[in-house]
Amino acid sequence: MNSTNLPLESSQVVQVEWSDRWIVYHRLQELHIPSYCATHQPLQVQLSSPTEAIQLWSVIKQYSASRRELIEWLHTCWQAKET
């Protein structure tokens, strides 16, 4: 059995829309962030670094924010880079 499919001992439950949690779970797997998601259960994620926390935030933001919010966030990033 793949260890990424086992419940995590010290993990955080992440509130994600039920329709998006499998997509978020698979993206976290691609990023090598330990996570666990069972049928009819919330997503659990084990974070071991600030980088993983930022990646988790970014993945969730991708699926929870509106298109307009994402565009505004991108513009803010571009403006910060120019200064």
Rank of each mutant, 00 (worst) to 15 (best):
L6N: 11
P34I: 00
W57F: 12
H40V: 07
E82A: 12
T39F: 08
W78T: 08
S64D: 08
E30C: 05
D20N: 15
V14S: 01
Q12E: 12
Q12T: 13
A65E: 15
S11K: 01
R21G: 01
S48E: 14
S3C: 06
I60M: 08
Q79S: 13
T4I: 09
W73R: 10
W18N: 13
C37Y: 04
T83Q: 15
H40E: 12
V13T: 15
R21S: 09
K81P: 00
C37T: 02
V45A: 01
Q44K: 07
V45S: 01
R68G: 08
Y25V: 02
E9C: 09
I23W: 03
K61W: 05
S19M: 13
W22H: 09
T39K: 12
L43T: 05
L6S: 13
C37F: 03
S19I: 13
H40N: 14
Q62D: 05
Y63T: 05
V16G: 02
W57M: 10
N5K: 13
I33Q: 03
S35K: 03
E82C: 07
Q79F: 03
W57L: 13
L43C: 06
A80G: 02
S3E: 14
Q15R: 11
W57G: 08
E17D: 14
L6P: 00
Q62I: 03
S48C: 09
L43R: 02
I33M: 03
Q55L: 10
I33D: 02
T39A: 10
T51W: 01
S35M: 02
A53H: 00
S19V: 10
T39S: 09
L6R: 14
T51Q: 13
T83I: 14
S66C: 09
V13M: 06
Y25N: 09
S48H: 12
Y63N: 04
E52K: 04
P34G: 02
T83C: 06
S35A: 15
Y63P: 05
W22T: 09
L74C: 04
S11L: 05
E9V: 15
P7L: 11
T51C: 02
S35W: 00
L47M: 08
W57D: 11
N2W: 07
S35T: 10
Q15M: 08
W18Q: 14
S66H: 08
Q41N: 08
L74K: 04
Y63G: 05
E30A: 09
H40F: 07
R68H: 12
E9M: 09
I23M: 06
E52W: 01
S10T: 08
C37E: 01
V59L: 05
V45E: 00
Q44I: 00
C77S: 09
S49L: 05
Q79M: 08
H32Q: 14
K61E: 15
D20F: 10
S64F: 02
T4Y: 12
K81D: 09
V13E: 12
I54N: 00
W18G: 10
W78Y: 10
Q15E: 15
A80D: 12
